[in-house]
């Protein structure tokens, strides 16, 4: 592949990268909010709700992302749900990731030692105060590493959106490959690009992880 092909297609590739980043960030953001809500709902004293949310998580985690996308994008119109490819992609990514985030938050809540909550109750803290000052901060530290991990996984999943014609990077690259007969070179460039992207994101993620959990190392020693 000559570089002037890349140069000629640079505008569409750059816009594709923009769509990739957009789908990733909005989709994951949606997934985080939904996931947190699901995890909170699963602690509710209402057993049908807990049961329903558990079924949702199992359903989403038990089926392939591509299948969910087809269901949303291709089968949606038959129940009156008409979405553009990009909207279906973002919502699909949000729903898919929400199940994984919900499990992470659930484990995070469970990781807060029971003794801390007992202690908070015994010194007379209000339930909302306990949630805000004890449970959430404790859970946050436990969830950051797996959340970073899942975000990285989701950055790779955005490639699947190209199959339902979301005009993200992979889609633009395949369009270029088809128009210029450079399939092999294009896919090679994609492999290198995504590998670098994931490496950079992983490194940034680990740095974020360290800074969020830094206070633990400081307070871990004998005071």
């Amino acid at each position: 592949m000559s570089f002037d092909v890349l140069w000629r297609y640079a505008p569409s590739l750059i816009s594709g990268f923009g769509v990739t980043i957009l789908c990733w960030s909005i989709g994951s953001g949606l997934g985080l909010v939904l996931g947190a809500a699901i995890a909170l709902g699963r602690r509710a004293p209402l057993s049908p709700l807990r049961w329903l949310l558990r079924a949702y998580v199992e359903l989403i985690r038990g089926t392939p992302f591509l299948m969910q996308l087809f269901l949303l994008y291709a089968a949606g119109p038959s129940i009156g749900l008409r979405l553009s490819a990009t909207a279906a992609g973002v919502i699909g990514l949000g729903i898919y990731s929400s199940a994984y985030f919900a499990e992470i938050f659930r484990a995070g809540f469970a990781a807060v030692p029971k003794g801390q909550i007992d202690a908070a109750v015994s010194i007379g803290m209000a339930p909302l105060d306990i949630l805000w000052r004890i449970t959430l901060p404790g859970a946050l530290v436990a969830v950051v590493p797996p959340i970073v991990n899942t975000l990285i996984v989701m950055s790779k999943e955005t490639v699947v959106l190209s199959i339902i014609t979301v005009p993200e990077l992979m889609y633009q690259m395949q369009t270029m490959a088809a128009e210029t007969f450079t399939a092999f070179d294009a896919i090679f460039a994609m492999a290198v690009f995504y590998w670098l992207l994931v490496e950079v994101v992983s490194r940034l993620g680990r740095r974020l992880e360290r800074s969020v959990t830094a206070f633990m190392r400081h307070s871990a020693g004998p005071a």
């Binding site: 790779k156 999943e157 490639v159 699947v160 190209s162 199959i163 992979m170 399939a183 092999f184 896919i187 090679f188 994609m190 492999a191 995504y194 590998w195 994931v198 490496e199 992983s202």
Partner: peptide, 17 residues
């Protein structure tokens, strides 16, 4: 690092091509 970093769809198409 490579096989966990490159999305599976890209890997599959790469091998195919």
């Amino acid at each position: 690092s490579v096989f966990r970093g490159v999305p599976l769809l890209v890997q599959l198409l790469f091998i195919y091509y």
